[in-house]
Design a protein around this nucleic acid. Sequence first.
DNA 1: CTTGACAAGTTCTAAAAAGGAACTGACTAT
DNA 2: ATAGTCAGTTCCTTTTTAGAACTTGTCAAG
Lengths: 160, 160
Amino acid sequence: MRWEHLDQEPCSVARTLSVIGDRWTLIILRDCFLGVRRFEKFESRLGITRHVLTDRLKKLVQNDVLVKTPYQEKPRREEYRLTEKGLALHPVIMSLVHWGNTYMTDDEHGAPLIHIHKSCGHRMSPVTTCSHCGEPVTARDIRVEVGAGWEGVVKTPRTE
Amino acid sequence: MRWEHLDQEPCSVARTLSVIGDRWTLIILRDCFLGVRRFEKFESRLGITRHVLTDRLKKLVQNDVLVKTPYQEKPRREEYRLTEKGLALHPVIMSLVHWGNTYMTDDEHGAPLIHIHKSCGHRMSPVTTCSHCGEPVTARDIRVEVGAGWEGVVKTPRTE
DNA sequence: CTTGACAAGTTCTAAAAAGGAACTGACTAT
DNA sequence: ATAGTCAGTTCCTTTTTAGAACTTGTCAAG
Protein backbone atom coordinates (compact mmCIF):
# COMPACT_ATOMS: atom_id res chain seq x y z
CA MET A 1 0.00 0.00 0.00
CA ARG A 2 1.36 3.34 -0.93
CA TRP A 3 0.40 6.65 0.60
CA GLU A 4 -1.31 8.00 -2.47
CA HIS A 5 -3.94 5.31 -2.07
CA LEU A 6 -4.47 5.90 1.61
CA ASP A 7 -6.71 8.90 1.21
CA GLN A 8 -9.08 6.87 -0.92
CA GLU A 9 -9.68 4.24 1.73
CA PRO A 10 -13.11 4.23 3.29
CA CYS A 11 -11.48 4.40 6.72
CA SER A 12 -11.43 7.84 8.23
CA VAL A 13 -8.40 7.10 10.38
CA ALA A 14 -6.32 6.14 7.40
CA ARG A 15 -7.52 9.24 5.61
CA THR A 16 -6.71 11.41 8.59
CA LEU A 17 -3.21 10.03 8.61
CA SER A 18 -2.89 10.66 4.89
CA VAL A 19 -3.24 14.35 5.78
CA ILE A 20 -1.38 14.74 9.06
CA GLY A 21 0.28 11.38 9.69
CA ASP A 22 3.71 12.60 8.81
CA ARG A 23 6.58 13.73 10.98
CA TRP A 24 7.10 17.14 9.45
CA THR A 25 3.40 17.86 9.09
CA LEU A 26 2.83 17.41 12.80
CA ILE A 27 5.75 19.65 13.72
CA ILE A 28 4.52 22.27 11.25
CA LEU A 29 1.11 22.15 12.87
CA ARG A 30 2.62 22.54 16.33
CA ASP A 31 4.24 25.74 15.09
CA CYS A 32 0.98 26.90 13.49
CA PHE A 33 -0.66 26.71 16.90
CA LEU A 34 2.24 28.76 18.26
CA GLY A 35 1.38 31.47 15.74
CA VAL A 36 3.95 30.83 13.05
CA ARG A 37 2.59 31.74 9.61
CA ARG A 38 5.45 32.38 7.18
CA PHE A 39 7.51 30.11 5.01
CA GLU A 40 10.86 31.48 6.16
CA LYS A 41 9.85 31.30 9.79
CA PHE A 42 8.90 27.64 9.53
CA GLU A 43 12.12 26.89 7.75
CA SER A 44 14.43 28.59 10.19
CA ARG A 45 12.62 27.28 13.26
CA LEU A 46 12.31 23.69 12.12
CA GLY A 47 15.41 22.99 10.09
CA ILE A 48 13.16 21.40 7.46
CA THR A 49 14.34 21.48 3.87
CA ARG A 50 12.58 24.03 1.71
CA HIS A 51 11.45 21.42 -0.73
CA VAL A 52 9.67 19.35 1.89
CA LEU A 53 8.21 22.45 3.52
CA THR A 54 6.74 23.57 0.20
CA ASP A 55 5.27 20.14 -0.33
CA ARG A 56 3.76 19.80 3.16
CA LEU A 57 2.26 23.29 3.17
CA LYS A 58 0.74 22.62 -0.24
CA LYS A 59 -0.83 19.40 0.98
CA LEU A 60 -2.19 21.06 4.11
CA VAL A 61 -3.75 23.78 1.95
CA GLN A 62 -5.21 21.20 -0.45
CA ASN A 63 -6.74 19.40 2.49
CA ASP A 64 -8.23 22.61 3.86
CA VAL A 65 -6.23 22.52 7.08
CA LEU A 66 -4.40 25.76 6.25
CA VAL A 67 -5.31 28.69 4.03
CA LYS A 68 -2.74 30.57 2.03
CA THR A 69 -3.48 34.27 1.94
CA PRO A 70 -1.39 37.22 0.81
CA TYR A 71 -0.47 39.59 3.62
CA GLN A 72 1.00 42.11 1.18
CA GLU A 73 1.17 42.79 -2.55
CA LYS A 74 4.28 44.29 -4.17
CA PRO A 75 5.99 42.03 -3.67
CA ARG A 76 3.36 39.42 -3.08
CA ARG A 77 3.92 37.64 0.21
CA GLU A 78 1.82 34.77 1.42
CA GLU A 79 1.09 33.45 4.85
CA TYR A 80 -0.44 30.23 6.08
CA ARG A 81 -3.21 30.22 8.65
CA LEU A 82 -5.22 27.50 10.30
CA THR A 83 -8.78 27.03 9.03
CA GLU A 84 -11.63 25.87 11.25
CA LYS A 85 -10.76 22.33 10.19
CA GLY A 86 -7.18 23.00 11.17
CA LEU A 87 -8.12 24.54 14.51
CA ALA A 88 -10.11 21.39 15.21
CA LEU A 89 -6.80 19.53 15.31
CA HIS A 90 -5.89 21.30 18.52
CA PRO A 91 -6.92 18.40 20.77
CA VAL A 92 -4.58 16.14 18.80
CA ILE A 93 -1.63 18.48 19.28
CA MET A 94 -2.48 19.15 22.90
CA SER A 95 -2.62 15.49 23.78
CA LEU A 96 0.63 14.96 21.90
CA VAL A 97 2.26 17.76 23.88
CA HIS A 98 0.84 16.42 27.12
CA TRP A 99 2.15 12.93 26.47
CA GLY A 100 5.53 14.37 25.57
CA ASN A 101 5.61 16.46 28.71
CA THR A 102 4.73 13.41 30.78
CA TYR A 103 6.94 10.75 29.25
CA MET A 104 9.60 12.38 27.15
CA THR A 105 10.65 15.40 29.17
CA ASP A 106 14.28 16.04 29.74
CA ASP A 107 14.59 16.59 33.47
CA GLU A 108 17.20 19.25 33.02
CA HIS A 109 14.85 21.48 31.11
CA GLY A 110 11.22 20.82 32.05
CA ALA A 111 8.21 21.13 29.78
CA PRO A 112 8.88 23.11 26.61
CA LEU A 113 5.25 23.98 25.87
CA ILE A 114 2.68 25.16 28.38
CA HIS A 115 -1.06 25.60 27.83
CA ILE A 116 -2.95 28.38 29.59
CA HIS A 117 -6.74 28.27 29.72
CA LYS A 118 -7.69 31.87 28.97
CA SER A 119 -11.03 31.90 30.77
CA CYS A 120 -9.80 30.47 34.07
CA GLY A 121 -6.30 31.84 33.70
CA HIS A 122 -4.49 28.74 34.87
CA ARG A 123 -1.92 26.49 33.42
CA MET A 124 -3.76 23.39 32.26
CA SER A 125 -3.27 20.00 30.71
CA PRO A 126 -5.90 18.40 28.52
CA VAL A 127 -8.26 15.93 30.19
CA THR A 128 -10.22 13.74 27.85
CA THR A 129 -13.81 13.23 28.95
CA CYS A 130 -16.86 11.36 27.72
CA SER A 131 -19.19 13.45 25.57
CA HIS A 132 -22.16 11.62 27.05
CA CYS A 133 -21.57 11.54 30.80
CA GLY A 134 -18.74 14.04 31.15
CA GLU A 135 -16.48 11.77 33.20
CA PRO A 136 -12.75 11.65 32.47
CA VAL A 137 -11.78 8.60 30.47
CA THR A 138 -8.60 6.58 30.01
CA ALA A 139 -7.80 3.80 27.57
CA ARG A 140 -9.21 1.15 29.91
CA ASP A 141 -12.59 2.89 30.16
CA ILE A 142 -13.18 2.71 26.44
CA ARG A 143 -14.19 -0.12 24.16
CA VAL A 144 -13.37 0.48 20.53
CA GLU A 145 -15.79 -0.94 18.00
CA VAL A 146 -15.61 -1.16 14.28
CA GLY A 147 -18.45 0.82 12.76
CA ALA A 148 -20.26 0.93 9.45
CA GLY A 149 -17.44 2.63 7.61
CA TRP A 150 -14.90 -0.08 8.20
CA GLU A 151 -16.30 -2.73 5.86
CA GLY A 152 -13.29 -4.96 5.68
CA VAL A 153 -11.31 -2.40 3.79
CA VAL A 154 -8.33 -2.23 6.05
CA LYS A 155 -8.53 -5.95 6.60
CA THR A 156 -7.83 -6.62 2.94
CA PRO A 157 -5.73 -3.72 1.75
CA ARG A 158 -3.94 -5.86 -0.79
CA THR A 159 -6.99 -6.54 -2.89
CA GLU A 160 -7.12 -2.99 -4.20
CA MET B 1 17.92 17.99 10.63
CA ARG B 2 17.54 14.29 10.40
CA TRP B 3 15.27 12.11 12.45
CA GLU B 4 18.02 10.37 14.35
CA HIS B 5 18.89 13.69 15.98
CA LEU B 6 15.32 14.57 16.85
CA ASP B 7 15.14 12.42 19.94
CA GLN B 8 18.11 14.23 21.42
CA GLU B 9 16.49 17.63 21.28
CA PRO B 10 15.49 19.15 24.60
CA CYS B 11 11.98 19.68 23.23
CA SER B 12 9.48 17.09 24.34
CA VAL B 13 7.26 17.57 21.32
CA ALA B 14 10.07 16.83 18.92
CA ARG B 15 11.00 13.82 20.99
CA THR B 16 7.41 12.63 21.02
CA LEU B 17 7.30 12.83 17.28
CA SER B 18 10.58 10.95 17.04
CA VAL B 19 8.67 8.04 18.60
CA ILE B 20 5.20 8.22 17.09
CA GLY B 21 5.36 10.94 14.43
CA ASP B 22 5.32 8.52 11.58
CA ARG B 23 2.54 7.33 9.35
CA TRP B 24 2.92 3.62 9.92
CA THR B 25 3.59 3.98 13.62
CA LEU B 26 0.30 5.76 14.17
CA ILE B 27 -1.65 3.18 12.18
CA ILE B 28 0.09 0.40 14.09
CA LEU B 29 -0.94 2.06 17.34
CA ARG B 30 -4.52 2.38 16.17
CA ASP B 31 -4.53 -1.37 15.64
CA CYS B 32 -2.92 -1.96 19.03
CA PHE B 33 -5.85 -0.18 20.64
CA LEU B 34 -8.14 -2.44 18.63
CA GLY B 35 -6.44 -5.43 20.25
CA VAL B 36 -4.06 -6.51 17.51
CA ARG B 37 -0.91 -8.04 18.97
CA ARG B 38 0.79 -10.26 16.40
CA PHE B 39 3.22 -9.57 13.61
CA GLU B 40 1.24 -11.41 10.97
CA LYS B 41 -1.98 -9.75 12.00
CA PHE B 42 -0.51 -6.28 11.67
CA GLU B 43 0.93 -7.16 8.33
CA SER B 44 -2.22 -8.60 6.79
CA ARG B 45 -4.47 -5.85 8.17
CA LEU B 46 -2.27 -2.93 7.25
CA GLY B 47 -0.58 -3.89 4.02
CA ILE B 48 2.69 -2.67 5.51
CA THR B 49 5.88 -4.30 4.28
CA ARG B 50 7.41 -6.76 6.71
CA HIS B 51 10.66 -4.86 6.78
CA VAL B 52 9.05 -1.63 7.89
CA LEU B 53 6.82 -3.40 10.36
CA THR B 54 9.84 -5.06 11.99
CA ASP B 55 11.55 -1.72 12.23
CA ARG B 56 8.57 0.17 13.69
CA LEU B 57 7.74 -2.50 16.25
CA LYS B 58 11.37 -2.55 17.32
CA LYS B 59 11.37 1.22 17.79
CA LEU B 60 8.13 1.15 19.74
CA VAL B 61 9.59 -1.51 22.03
CA GLN B 62 12.82 0.46 22.47
CA ASN B 63 10.78 3.49 23.44
CA ASP B 64 8.76 1.50 25.94
CA VAL B 65 5.45 2.03 24.16
CA LEU B 66 5.03 -1.69 23.44
CA VAL B 67 6.41 -4.76 25.19
CA LYS B 68 7.39 -7.88 23.31
CA THR B 69 6.46 -11.00 25.22
CA PRO B 70 6.40 -14.63 24.19
CA TYR B 71 2.90 -16.11 24.21
CA GLN B 72 4.26 -19.60 23.51
CA GLU B 73 7.54 -21.53 23.43
CA LYS B 74 8.20 -24.32 20.92
CA PRO B 75 8.21 -22.56 18.60
CA ARG B 76 8.76 -19.27 20.27
CA ARG B 77 6.09 -16.78 19.27
CA GLU B 78 6.09 -13.17 20.35
CA GLU B 79 3.33 -10.66 20.74
CA TYR B 80 3.33 -6.93 21.18
CA ARG B 81 1.28 -5.27 23.88
CA LEU B 82 0.80 -1.69 24.96
CA THR B 83 2.63 -0.62 28.11
CA GLU B 84 1.28 2.01 30.49
CA LYS B 85 3.20 4.57 28.50
CA GLY B 86 1.58 3.22 25.35
CA LEU B 87 -1.90 3.20 26.87
CA ALA B 88 -1.35 6.85 27.75
CA LEU B 89 -1.36 7.58 24.02
CA HIS B 90 -5.04 6.76 23.86
CA PRO B 91 -6.16 10.42 23.96
CA VAL B 92 -3.97 11.09 20.94
CA ILE B 93 -5.51 8.26 18.96
CA MET B 94 -9.03 9.11 20.11
CA SER B 95 -8.74 12.72 19.07
CA LEU B 96 -7.27 11.62 15.77
CA VAL B 97 -10.21 9.26 15.22
CA HIS B 98 -12.66 11.96 16.24
CA TRP B 99 -11.19 14.48 13.83
CA GLY B 100 -11.24 11.90 11.07
CA ASN B 101 -14.85 11.01 11.80
CA THR B 102 -15.78 14.69 11.70
CA TYR B 103 -13.84 15.94 8.71
CA MET B 104 -12.73 12.97 6.65
CA THR B 105 -15.67 10.62 6.73
CA ASP B 106 -16.89 9.16 3.52
CA ASP B 107 -20.64 9.79 3.50
CA GLU B 108 -21.33 6.45 1.90
CA HIS B 109 -19.88 4.55 4.79
CA GLY B 110 -20.08 6.52 8.03
CA ALA B 111 -17.61 6.42 10.89
CA PRO B 112 -15.32 3.39 10.80
CA LEU B 113 -14.36 3.45 14.48
CA ILE B 114 -16.71 3.98 17.39
CA HIS B 115 -15.81 4.52 21.01
CA ILE B 116 -18.02 3.15 23.79
CA HIS B 117 -17.57 4.41 27.34
CA LYS B 118 -17.79 1.23 29.38
CA SER B 119 -19.03 2.79 32.61
CA CYS B 120 -21.89 4.77 31.10
CA GLY B 121 -22.45 2.38 28.23
CA HIS B 122 -22.91 5.02 25.56
CA ARG B 123 -21.22 5.80 22.33
CA MET B 124 -18.94 8.74 23.03
CA SER B 125 -16.55 11.11 21.41
CA PRO B 126 -13.64 12.64 23.28
CA VAL B 127 -14.15 16.10 24.78
CA THR B 128 -11.01 17.90 25.82
CA THR B 129 -11.39 19.77 29.08
CA CYS B 130 -9.26 21.95 31.32
CA SER B 131 -7.52 20.06 34.13
CA HIS B 132 -7.95 23.07 36.39
CA CYS B 133 -11.55 24.20 35.95
CA GLY B 134 -13.03 21.23 34.11
CA GLU B 135 -14.60 23.27 31.31
CA PRO B 136 -14.42 22.02 27.70
CA VAL B 137 -11.75 23.82 25.71
CA THR B 138 -11.17 24.55 22.03
CA ALA B 139 -8.12 25.99 20.29
CA ARG B 140 -9.36 29.55 20.84
CA ASP B 141 -9.64 29.09 24.60
CA ILE B 142 -5.98 28.22 24.98
CA ARG B 143 -2.86 30.31 24.93
CA VAL B 144 0.28 28.34 24.20
CA GLU B 145 3.43 29.50 25.93
CA VAL B 146 6.99 28.45 25.55
CA GLY B 147 8.24 27.00 28.83
CA ALA B 148 11.59 26.36 30.44
CA GLY B 149 12.41 23.38 28.25
CA TRP B 150 12.32 25.25 25.00
CA GLU B 151 15.53 27.28 25.41
CA GLY B 152 15.95 28.32 21.81
CA VAL B 153 16.68 24.79 20.76
CA VAL B 154 14.06 24.45 18.10
CA LYS B 155 14.66 28.02 17.04
CA THR B 156 18.21 27.22 16.05
CA PRO B 157 18.18 23.58 15.03
CA ARG B 158 21.03 24.07 12.59
CA THR B 159 23.57 25.02 15.19
CA GLU B 160 23.79 21.48 16.47
C1' DC C 1 21.67 52.70 -11.29
C1' DT C 2 24.11 49.06 -9.29
C1' DT C 3 24.48 46.23 -5.19
C1' DG C 4 22.52 43.82 -1.46
C1' DA C 5 18.82 41.97 1.12
C1' DC C 6 14.38 39.52 1.75
C1' DA C 7 10.57 36.30 1.10
C1' DA C 8 8.93 32.43 -1.10
C1' DG C 9 9.91 29.46 -3.65
C1' DT C 10 12.45 25.88 -7.61
C1' DT C 11 16.20 22.89 -9.32
C1' DC C 12 19.89 19.66 -8.83
C1' DT C 13 22.42 15.50 -7.03
C1' DA C 14 23.40 12.11 -3.40
C1' DA C 15 21.80 9.56 0.47
C1' DA C 16 18.18 7.30 3.05
C1' DA C 17 13.84 5.00 3.44
C1' DA C 18 10.11 2.28 1.64
C1' DG C 19 8.06 -1.10 -1.60
C1' DG C 20 7.81 -5.81 -3.35
C1' DA C 21 8.84 -10.38 -3.57
C1' DA C 22 11.25 -14.44 -2.23
C1' DC C 23 13.70 -17.03 1.40
C1' DT C 24 14.69 -18.98 6.46
C1' DG C 25 13.97 -21.63 10.54
C1' DA C 26 11.48 -23.73 14.01
C1' DC C 27 7.95 -25.92 14.64
C1' DT C 28 2.62 -28.41 13.83
C1' DA C 29 -1.02 -30.85 11.48
C1' DT C 30 -2.44 -34.18 7.63
C1' DA D 1 6.76 -36.16 3.32
C1' DT D 2 4.22 -32.36 2.40
C1' DA D 3 1.96 -28.29 3.31
C1' DG D 4 1.08 -24.53 6.47
C1' DT D 5 2.00 -20.95 10.27
C1' DC D 6 4.53 -17.30 12.44
C1' DA D 7 8.10 -14.02 12.92
C1' DG D 8 11.09 -12.49 10.83
C1' DT D 9 15.56 -11.52 7.09
C1' DT D 10 17.63 -10.74 2.49
C1' DC D 11 17.87 -8.71 -1.98
C1' DC D 12 16.85 -5.39 -5.39
C1' DT D 13 14.05 -1.40 -7.24
C1' DT D 14 11.47 2.79 -6.64
C1' DT D 15 10.33 6.82 -3.99
C1' DT D 16 11.34 10.31 -0.74
C1' DT D 17 14.39 13.36 1.75
C1' DA D 18 18.67 16.05 2.70
C1' DG D 19 21.59 19.67 1.50
C1' DA D 20 23.03 23.27 -1.05
C1' DA D 21 22.69 26.49 -4.84
C1' DC D 22 19.82 29.15 -7.97
C1' DT D 23 15.36 32.15 -9.36
C1' DT D 24 11.96 35.85 -9.24
C1' DG D 25 9.93 40.19 -7.83
C1' DT D 26 10.57 44.02 -5.06
C1' DC D 27 12.46 47.56 -1.97
C1' DA D 28 16.30 50.30 0.13
C1' DA D 29 20.97 52.10 0.48
C1' DG D 30 25.14 53.95 -1.44
